[in-house]
Design a protein around this nucleic acid. Structure first.
Lengths: 243, 243
DNA sequence: CGAAAGATTGATAAGCATCAAACAGAGTGG
DNA sequence: CCACTCTGTTTGATGCTTATCAATCTTTCG
């Protein structure tokens, strides 16, 4: 049965929340959690649905509970660059600003735990533990963004593809509490187009580089979306990174 | 006379500080300011000097008072990407983390107002106004980093150069409480090499694109570093941005 | 003045985008 | 069950953009 993303699911207690210990509310005390619990609304989006358009009024903020959201910007002639991917526990929206500077799109079916903006801003103003957690998460995101800038500005197409394959592999491994090594198999969660927008390439170049890695035996493909890593060390070499 | 960047200058009262109203201390009360005043140490760096190497222990944090600092990452074969530029009032370093993931280099002669890391971390833990200001500044930097990702991933060389010229122009205008328009003149604060590392280009491409804009009459150069904008609207058009 | 660093310009080549066509898989309806 | 469409993917041919290599010019500073 297909998941109907528009359907609002039953409210859940914060104490049972799967992202409880990683999200913005990670270090909340019981009473603070109670306040959040009373404020929250779950929102669901189907894959491909836009959560917020760039420039739109930002009326709510919140956390990703399940699924992946992409942040992307568009140039005047339609060229698109993905500037971030939000995974479960990541925070959506920006306190203290009235509009978002980029589109937020559900890359997969997506479930958010949201708060109306104004009350949430008032809450963090009097709750240092939330503010501190938000600062820490924002600093992490800034580091990630800067690492991505290095990829976008200086890496070749082959290095970009190798890098992104390993990133998806590690994400997949982490979810299964496994590690990436020779023979590790994982699924690409997104289309070639999304990968291209993420890497600052065209879909043709993405496809060609994946084919090249396949032809050289570093990876094997089962269909277009399932990847097996044959030579992990060699693939890591191809990333160009300094470690 | 050449500015000797290693020479420690006379301590300055926070109340007279040129970045007082924009830095991390912007919203401090008088007593909080007094605490900071007692903690601070000025540090000067000559253009080209490295403030912190990637991976080094982070022993101090602080604000840029004068000059420009660059944040950059290096790939295994030496390719470099600048991932941020810090101007006066911008914050250096990251509370809550012991090492920096990128090199911090003085792009020009540089003056910092620094605090030892530990005492400063303790201070922000009990001073919400500083933490709030730091969060706000970090969110701004994240937005800037994401905008830069769009430039790096999707803009052409010409668009990159036009964009960076306008960024420098606006920075310069803001400092003089002026606005950018036809006839506006400003200095490029950095070498072509730094611009190239910032834009993910080579110095030759930077030079060629600047020459092209000059040849087409959008800008005029006085020497290599002084730029006059002849046609602001046309230059803005060249950026490719969606507004 | 002479050396060194920074900037410009030219010739050439590599890398990636663009345009175009074919292929593969999933879902649809006769 | 098979044609049919739609979307996503692969592959090929070609050309533009930018990197690379190299030489010259300019500015700065000792």
């Amino acid at each position: 049965m297909k998941f109907d993303a528009r359907l609002n699911t039953v409210e859940q207690d914060c104490a049972d929340c799967p992202i409880r210990h990683n999200a913005v509310c990670a270090h909340c005390e019981t009473d603070e959690l109670g306040t959040l619990d009373a404020m929250k609304t779950y929102r669901n989006f189907a894959a491909g649905e836009t959560v917020i358009w760039a420039g739109d009024d930002l009326t709510f903020l919140g956390s990703v509970i399940d699924g992946v959201a992409s942040l992307s910007r568009t140039l005047s002639d339609g060229r698109r660059q993905m500037v971030g991917m939000l995974f479960p526990s990541d925070f959506v929206g920006r306190p203290g600003r009235s509009t978002t500077p980029y589109d937020v799109v559900a890359a997969t079916d997506l479930r958010l735990c949201t708060f109306r903006k104004k009350p949430f801003e008032e809450l963090i103003a009097r709750t240092p533990s939330i503010e501190r957690r938000l600062l820490s998460m924002t600093l992490d995101e800034l580091d990630a963004a800067r690492e991505w800038m290095t990829l976008l500005g200086r890496k070749t197409a082959r290095e970009k593809i190798s890098s992104v394959l390993l990133i998806f592999a590690r994400r997949s491994a982490a979810l299964q509490k496994d590690t990436v090594g020779d023979g590790f198999s994982f699924a690409l969660p997104v289309t070639r187009e999304v990968i291209a927008d993420y890497l600052g390439l065209t879909i043709e170049t993405v496809s060609r580089q994946i084919s090249a890695l396949k032809k050289e035996g570093l990876i094997t493909l089962n269909g277009a979306r399932q990847v097996v890593i044959n030579d992990h060390d060699a693939l890591k070499e191809q990333c160009g990174d300094d470690d």
